[in-house]
Simulated assay, not measured.
Amino acid sequence: MGALWFEFYGTAHIGAIHSLVTAYLVAASALGLGLAGVVIDAGTELEAQA
């Protein structure tokens, strides 16, 4: 996937684009865990979540 970024966006701002995507991935993983915790607290079984 990383090689496609050079094709789509060029090389001028690839560092900024990579860091932005990485920040979004970290935030999404944190939000996913928080959401899973809220759903577990609401009484939903893990099998139903999957």
Rank of each mutant, 00 (worst) to 15 (best):
G15T: 09
A28I: 12
L35W: 05
F6R: 11
A28C: 10
Y24N: 13
A42E: 03
I40A: 12
L35K: 06
G2K: 13
T11P: 00
Y9C: 04
H18D: 07
Y9I: 00
I14D: 01
I40R: 13
L25K: 07
A30P: 01
T11G: 05
T22P: 00
G43V: 03
D41M: 03
G34I: 08
D41P: 00
A27N: 12
Y24I: 07
A27K: 14
G15W: 02
Q49S: 13
F6D: 03
F6L: 08
G34C: 08
S29Q: 11
A23K: 14
G37N: 05
G2L: 08
A48Q: 14
S29Y: 08
T11H: 02
A12W: 01
G10K: 05
L25Y: 07
A42H: 03
A50W: 14
D41K: 07
W5M: 06
G37P: 00
F6T: 07
Y24V: 12
T11I: 02
E45L: 15
A12G: 01
V39I: 14
V26H: 04
W5I: 08
W5C: 00
A28V: 12
A42I: 00
G32E: 13
V39K: 10
G43K: 03
F6C: 01
Y9H: 07
G37D: 01
A12Q: 09
A50R: 15
G34Y: 06
H13K: 13
I40L: 11
E47Q: 15
G43N: 03
L33F: 06
G2A: 11
T44V: 15
V39D: 01
G15K: 08
T22Y: 07
V38A: 08
Y9G: 01
E47K: 15
G37R: 01
L20Q: 12
L20M: 06
H18W: 07
G43T: 02
